[in-house]
């Protein structure tokens, strides 16, 4: 049996973070939660992850900063941005900082996210 892929969910909205955790676990992944950017970076430094689901607007450290830190720390873990910001500026900004994909949470069924994660981690 393969060891499950590790996914880090950095999301301050706890109910959403839990939903993702539940669904991804259900889908056979190992999911860990961080409720702000700072905690996320801490976890990333502790152990490697296969994928990061990153929110943008968060207390303490926002998603854009997380992306910058990842870049400077040379952490190459792929990042899927999950946010409710839908400004094209934000999308561009996030992609420039290395985000692989950009999802607007309210417009994206959770099943779609799982599918994308699965595809990326194939």
């Amino acid at each position: 049996m393969n060891t499950p892929k590790k996914i880090l969910i950095i999301e301050d909205e706890k109910t959403l973070a839990r939903a993702l955790e539940l669904t991804l676990t259900h889908a056979g992944f190992e999911a860990k939660l961080a409720f702000n950017g700072e905690d996320g970076i801490k976890l990333l430094k502790e152990s490697p992850f296969d994928l990061i689901l990153l929110d943008l607007i968060m207390p303490k450290m926002d998603g854009f900063t997380v992306l910058t830190v990842l870049k400077t720390e040379k952490i190459k873990t792929p990042v899927l941005v999950l946010t409710n910001l839908s400004q094209q500026n934000d999308i561009k900004h996030a992609e420039k900082f290395g985000a692989k994909e950009f999802f607007i949470k309210s417009n994206t069924p959770i099943a779609t996210i799982v599918t994308r994660v699965r595809e990326l981690l194939k």
């Binding site: 959403l16 939903a19 949470k105 069924p109």
Partner: peptide, 22 residues
């Protein structure tokens, strides 16, 4: 509107999960 998106996502995802039999 942006603020509304969070609770909307919550309802969306949880009803989805319920429907999926999770």
């Amino acid at each position: 509107s942006h603020q509304l998106r969070t609770p909307l996502s919550t309802v969306n995802w949880y009803s989805e999960m319920l429907l999926a039999g999770d």
